[in-house]
């Protein structure tokens, strides 16, 4: 028996907006602790991790661990139909994930479960020299700014500032932000702007983002719900000078 009820439909909507742009299919794992998902895109450039603990839900019941494999595009199409004020209920039957949106009316969708042969990948454990928090909106603005001049983004942090910058053929752009955190080293890596943009589609998950940066290391970006019960995080492989 699996049943999860959520009053904030935006959590799923915003998470899967990002997830569905990164991976075509996912294996969600449900157990008594909550729901989680680990997925790696086809070209192994982006890793995504979603964790929604029991406490995120208004009601949560899962008697035995189960795997819920779905096509992310199909799921996203359905989630887009949820209204902000709808209660979302997730259940599963023999071959479907069932989503019910309860508002003015009760609207029910079934999404066919798919076969996924492989095991969900586990995230690599990396040691980072820096960790700092920035407002999510600043990241969102930065990618718009950088997009004017380039399709790559250089992220740099030092004791004082976090900088997003790019040098393009026709011009340059730089965004500086005083992070106000204790950082003792500086770090810089370059990323594909398109890939960063995919992760930042999850713009309603959290107001701030925790970034971990190293030199020519993957970007670790974590969005945490205020209650600490939910997390959406990403790892993005850098572009490295050849």
């Amino acid at each position: 028996m699996f049943k999860a009820v959520l009053s904030d439909s935006n959590i799923l909507k915003t998470s899967f907006d990002a997830i569905s742009s990164i991976v075509d299919e996912v294996q969600m794992q449900a157990d008594e602790e909550g729901l989680r998902l680990d997925a790696l895109d086809r070209s192994h450039i982006t890793f995504v991790h979603l964790e929604l603990k029991k406490g995120v839900f208004d009601e949560y019941q899962c008697d035995e661990p189960m795997k819920i494999n779905v096509d992310t595009e199909e799921l996203m199409k359905v989630l887009k139909r949820a209204k902000a004020e709808d209660m979302v209920e997730l259940t599963v039957d023999e071959g479907n994930l069932i989503l019910s949106f309860e508002g003015e009316a009760r609207r029910k969708f079934k999404i066919r479960l798919i076969d996924i042969e492989y095991e969900a990948p586990s995230p690599p454990q990396l040691e980072y020299p820096t960790e700092f928090e920035v407002p999510f909106s600043l990241l969102k603005d930065s990618i718009q700014d950088i997009g004017i001049v380039s399709d790559k983004i250089s992220l740099h942090v030092n004791e004082e500032k976090f900088e997003a910058s790019a040098e393009g053929e026709f011009g340059d752009a730089k965004i500086e932000y005083l992070h106000g955190e204790k950082i003792e080293e500086s770090a810089r890596s370059i990323f594909s702007l398109e890939k960063v943009k995919e992760m930042l589609k999850a713009d309603k998950f959290s107001e701030s983002a925790v970034l971990r940066l190293g030199n020519d290391m993957p970007l670790n970006l974590a969005l945490k719900m205020a209650s600490d019960e939910g997390e959406l995080s990403f790892l993005l492989a850098p572009r490295i000078e050849s």
């Binding site: 450039i45 690599p124 370059i190 050849s242």
Partner: peptide, 12 residues
Amino acid sequence: QEKQTSLDAFFN
């Protein structure tokens, strides 16, 4: 000129 790396190099 940089090139896109994959996470595989960092997975181990």
